[in-house]
Design a protein around this nucleic acid. Sequence first.
DNA 1: ACATTAAGTGATT
DNA 2: AATCACTTAATGT
Length: 210
Amino acid sequence: MKNELDLNFGYVFEENLLDEIKKVGVQKNFSINSTIIEIGDFITSMPLLLNGAIKILREDENGEELVLYYLEKGDTCAMTLSCCMGQTKSKIRAVAETEVALLMVPKEKMTSWLSNYKSWQSFILQSYHNRVNELLEAVDTIAFLKMDKRIFKYLKDKAMVTHNDTLSVTHKEISEDLHTSRVVVSRLLKKLENENKIQLFRNSIKVLEL
DNA sequence: ACATTAAGTGATT
DNA sequence: AATCACTTAATGT
């Protein structure tokens, strides 16, 4: 197996840092749909996403979910950044959208690398910046976009991170991710199909306009 | 053949 | 956009 760290982070980190990461990093794999981080978990190491895509969810007191954004390879989780700094619990859930390979770096290393490696410093800052932007985008989507636009964006995002225009997902699952009802999803999907933006099948949807 | 699950639809709020 | 009530279609046992 070719080193996935070099592959995804080779241009981001300097040689010495890559060596250090290889020394202390532990690879962890998650199968599709498995939970990587649960709400309330303490986070003791910081994950670098080597492969796959992760869905970041928020949950309300009734257990109702809402998708915030997706992480792709080369990304890291902003929640762990803040959690590793302080000693707080995770306020989000992370679920493997595809098969996922993570490289876990002990949180103790995080702070020392911050002062020792410029590339690490800019990576962390850049990641934070990216996640804040994605969060704002998520807020915009929820607050300002109509449901039909939201569904279409959801489908496009999902197709993007899975590198597959045919999504195996049910209307019910979509409704849970977007925090709405199944009936509404079915209706709006039908509308999108009539507009030739998608094609509907049982248990799968093909996105035509990407 | 029967039960279960996914999806489509009209009517109402 | 949510909910109810009902139908139809596909799939599992």
